[in-house]
Design a protein around this nucleic acid. Structure first.
Lengths: 334, 334
DNA sequence: ATGAAAGCGCTAACAT
DNA sequence: ATGTTAGCGCTTTCAT
């Protein structure tokens, strides 16, 4: 059906080995030969069959990207820049959303292995971290994106979550808040953000209440749910500010507040995280900690490719700086 | 390295042909043999090498998805449901974002062909429609998602855009608006939405002004730009309502309005399209025409698989009903 | 009912 | 400098 290496060889009057060498830019040969073959390749629009190439043990030029949920703007943004840069490098990307489900994690790793992806980028949340070890043991190129876990020796690209947590909390403290709740999603990054939250309290000499630290999964619905729980505490106990560990949760909180005639930021200040499109499109605009998603996505591909090409160099770490974007959901405590 | 069909054959004491037959559930053989082989496959955790399988002409179990921009919530939602359903069917999906760029369209089609995807799902916008014809001629399974163009004979999954355009416009007309602008993105679907917009005017016996029909690409920035252009007309000429052909544009419009101290909906009513997360998270909540993204994504995979499996059945058409979700950006004309 | 062998398109070691 | 050939892991036809 499609044109094969044999067609090219025949048309150019050489053997398939020579064609192969031309394609891979290896071996010695007369320059005239190379040119002739190149011309035929052009004319016949020959493209090596990826399957056949892969079968001989070479790369598939495919990256496996595993995220919890591609419909979360944070991940779709990351995915965009990953895909973009991968394509620049002549690679394609297969996307898998785990939906925070352990079984899916297993399934997708297995699937991607079968598809012989050249490497993996795993983002944000992974319940079964033992899978990382397995991948590493098998020398599979792997980059963790937004999972800056020191216990895993592998390449990582993240922001400084501690710093981010500190920035957000400190901003609220500076605004006079003393009763600040943190709503943390179930992700490694959030643990660091909580430490940052603690540190900000310590530096300001504020004793934080452990019950102000809440955990959930990153959805708008959960933001709403948590908010109801929070105001269920009654006026006195109710926090005057909430730091949500991502924008989805923050948006849920804002919306539920509106439902309860609680005004943001007059009654309660809110800070989000990620600075996704949601932060800039919500009204009031959501104060949020920005991550350089573009750069991070790009870098993760770069690091991965580096790993694929050099068997060593498998433990680079890149930490980006978070930036607090102040909008309208935070104000002085009254 | 990994366990091959030979390993299984040896362990089960049969030939590789038999193993192959067991895997593919073909051929006749003693049930005991089948069971024995199956057991070995289980034990050895054998998985056929996709590359080798594909090389013999069988399917790759991969779908190529081409969208304009995966970071647009509308597409990331579609992608999510497509990916979801594809995985249910043991297929994976390679995503490509064209960024509305003609060259990228060519590049990605070529890329996906090389990767031997079993079929294509192309969504929303494609500048060079001649590529469709080429695909069709080569009998490549193809489904157009949100491109309900009658001039192309191929399977399609869309909503009724005419109906959607009518619904949105009619809603505004019923609210007393007579000077309604439509901001249409460059996509086939928008053309139909414009017809719906026209029809609503006709039925209400309103003569529309052609200059109220504006075109642009779907970004928030363009929404802002168009809005500035619109209010540049001066009070008298300025439309009292704007129908944006997607939420991104609508959000841009709302934001720019705020900048100019123009109140939505008191001064100008706005209707969006797609009913993405942006419509529900913006304040005021954006009135928007909903598409059943979940169902549409799912259906497109279903149709594609049907096409892959049966060489015929390549011209199904599914039209979903749009639904107007009324929120807070539309009100009676003052 | 089961196996032997050719072939899918390519790479790489070995010949010439 | 270029060609021959043995795999890579699988499917499928043809024998047995």
């Amino acid at each position: 059906m499609s044109v094969t290496i044999y067609d090219v060889a025949k048309a150019a009057g050489v053997s398939i080995a020579t064609v192969s060498q031309v394609v891979n830019n290896t071996g010695n040969m007369r320059d005239s030969t190379r040119q002739r073959v190149l011309k035929v390749i052009e004319e016949l629009e020959y493209h090596p069959n990826v399957m056949a190439t892969a079968l001989t043990g070479k790369e598939t030029k495919t990256i496996g990207l595993i995220v919890p949920d591609i419909s979360n703007p944070f991940f779709s943004n990351m995915a965009k820049s990953i895909e973009d840069y991968a394509h620049e490098k002549e690679m394609s990307v297969i996307i898998c959303s785990t939906k925070y489900d352990r079984d899916k994690e297993h399934k997708y790793i297995k699937l991607l292995k079968q598809k012989r992806v050249d490497g993996f980028i795993i983002a944000s949340t992974f319940k079964d971290q033992s899978l990382f070890e397995k991948l590493i043991k098998k020398k599979k190129p792997l980059v963790l994106l937004s999972i800056d876990d020191p216990s895993i020796e592998v390449s990582k690209v993240s922001i400084d979550d501690f710093q981010g947590g500190f920035l957000a909390t400190n901003h609220l403290i500076e605004k006079g808040h003393r009763n600040i709740a943190i709503v943390a999603e179930e992700a490694y990054s959030s643990r660091k953000r909580i430490y940052g939250y603690r540190e900000a309290h310590e530096q300001a000499n504020i004793t934080l209440k452990e019950k102000n630290i809440l955990h959930t999964t990153a959805t708008i619905e959960n933001g709403k749910r948590i908010f109801r729980k929070l105001i269920g505490r009654g006026e006195a106990e109710r926090p005057t500010a909430i730091f949500a560990s991502n924008d989805l949760l923050a948006i849920g909180i804002i919306h539920e507040a509106t439902q309860h005639q609680i005004h943001i930021p007059e009654d309660i200040s809110v800070v989000g995280f990620d600075n996704t499109i949601l932060a800039s499109t919500s009204v009031p605009g959501l104060t949020s900690v920005a991550q350089p998603m573009e750069d991070m996505g790009r870098k993760s591909v770069e690091v991965l490719i580096n790993q694929i090409e050099n068997d060593d160099a498998s433990n680079e770490r890149f930490l980006y700086n978070p930036e607090l974007i102040i909008r309208e959901t935070t104000m002085e405590k009254k």
